Simulated assay, not measured.
Amino acid sequence: MVRPAIVCLQETKVEHLTVDIVRHCPGINLENYFYLPATGTRGGILLAWDETIVGLSNPHPTMNTITALVKPKNGGHWWFTCVYGPQTDMDKVAFMQELVDVRELHAGPWAIMGDFNLLVSPQDKNNDVINRRMIARFRNKANQLEVKEMYLNGRKFTWSNERQRPTMEKIDHVFTTNCWDDAYPAALLTAMGSAVSDHCPLLLDINAYFAYGKRFRFESF
Rank of each mutant, 00 (worst) to 15 (best):
6 I>D: 07
8 C>L: 14
11 E>K: 05
12 T>A: 01
15 E>F: 03
16 H>T: 10
20 D>A: 12
22 V>E: 03
27 G>Y: 10
27 G>E: 07
27 G>A: 13
30 L>R: 10
34 F>Y: 15
40 G>P: 08
46 L>D: 01
49 W>H: 05
59 P>L: 11
69 L>E: 10
69 L>F: 04
73 K>R: 15
74 N>I: 14
75 G>C: 02
77 H>W: 06
81 T>C: 11
86 P>I: 10
87 Q>I: 11
88 T>G: 04
95 F>D: 05
96 M>S: 02
97 Q>A: 10
98 E>I: 06
99 L>W: 03
100 V>F: 05
108 G>V: 06
108 G>M: 07
112 I>W: 02
113 M>N: 03
114 G>C: 03
114 G>W: 00
117 N>V: 02
118 L>D: 03
119 L>N: 03
120 V>M: 14
122 P>F: 11
123 Q>F: 10
123 Q>N: 11
123 Q>A: 13
124 D>P: 00
125 K>F: 02
129 V>Q: 13
130 I>H: 01
130 I>Y: 01
132 R>Q: 09
138 F>S: 03
139 R>S: 08
145 L>P: 04
151 Y>P: 01
152 L>I: 02
160 S>G: 05
168 M>D: 00
171 I>P: 00
177 T>F: 04
182 D>C: 07
183 A>L: 15
184 Y>E: 02
189 L>I: 08
189 L>M: 09
192 M>I: 04
193 G>P: 01
194 S>N: 06
196 V>A: 14
196 V>W: 11
198 D>T: 01
199 H>P: 00
205 D>G: 03
213 G>K: 14
216 F>I: 13
217 R>N: 10
220 S>V: 15
